[in-house]
């Protein structure tokens, strides 16, 4: 073999080896703080309360096969799909309810504190949640196995991070309102979660009883939307009087 060929091949090998030494991800920039001035007289605040119910019989939960990762089989305390969380009285859980219209032009104090998204038992906890624009989401891996956290927003920046070590935490923020931003783990295909990102604090997530309570709301006319991962969205108009409570009910149908 000619010397020149040998040198070229050696250089290629060195280049290939050097190329394997880099990598890493970058942290997202912190969101600018919102003005802290109150948007309205708190004494006039009202609220919207109600219940989300499910009409019909949802498909039965399916058992998730986690055997692609033996650690998940050991860690999982719940290995059933959670598309439909239905309480005894027909209340529908994991519904994100929020004020969609009616707050335009108002500003609200920046959110304080962070929201935890935990990976525990190879599931995301919580499955559905809400945050404010710029509010910190702390993403934690409580499992003794590897996870990646892959957010796939449309209006915000996509990110995909690895958390190979138990106890690792990352912080992320979203800079624009978006309902909903999906999270998924590409290692464990069954893991997914959704976050609603809003520029105001008027949102709630229903529990097993389907109840929600959006309080401290300025008096006014609003469009309220309820979002469910399988059943889509519904909207209703509502008027909140000074110090009043408006009742609102949504019924999703299935089957």
């Amino acid at each position: 073999m000619q010397h020149r060929t040998l040198w070229t091949l050696t250089t290629l090998l060195v280049f290939a080896t050097a190329a394997c030494g880099g990598g890493g991800d970058s942290d997202a920039p912190a969101a600018p703080a919102a003005p802290a001035a109150p948007a309205f007289d708190p004494a006039t605040a009202g609220s919207v309360m109600g219940t989300i119910t499910l009409d019909g019989t949802p498909p039965p939960a399916e058992t998730i096969r986690m055997n692609s990762d033996p650690a998940c089989v050991e860690l999982a305390t719940d290995a059933e799909t959670e598309y439909y969380v239905v309480g005894g009285s027909g209340g529908l859980g994991n519904v994100f309810v929020y004020v969609k219209e009616g707050l335009e032009g108002r500003t609200f104090p920046a959110a304080t504190g962070s929201v935890m998204l935990d990976q525990q038992g190879c599931r995301y906890t919580p499955h559905v949640f809400g945050v404010r624009v710029g509010q910190t989401i702390t993403i934690r891996n409580s499992d003794a196995t590897l996870h990646n956290i892959h957010a796939t927003p449309l209006a915000n920046a996509e990110f995909n991070m690895g958390q190979p070590i138990q106890g690792m935490e990352f912080e992320r923020t979203f800079d624009s309102p978006e309902v909903m931003v999906p999270f998924k783990c590409d290692v464990h295909g069954w893991m997914n979660a959704y976050v609603g990102v809003l520029d105001h604090p008027y949102f709630a997530v229903t529990g097993d009883d389907g109840a929600f309570d959006i309080s401290n709301l300025p008096p006014g006319d609003y469009v309220v939307e309820a979002w469910h991962e399988e059943l889509g969205t519904q909207t209703q108009n509502v008027t909140v009087g000074e110090g009043g409570t408006a009742e609102l009910s949504f019924t999703f149908s299935v089957g």
Partner: peptide
Amino acid sequence: PDWPNTYGYFMFAFPWSGMVGG
């Protein structure tokens, strides 16, 4: 999620125990 590393490891040093799921 990373490249050319694998979860921060040099790709040939990534532990076999981590070869799970995707």
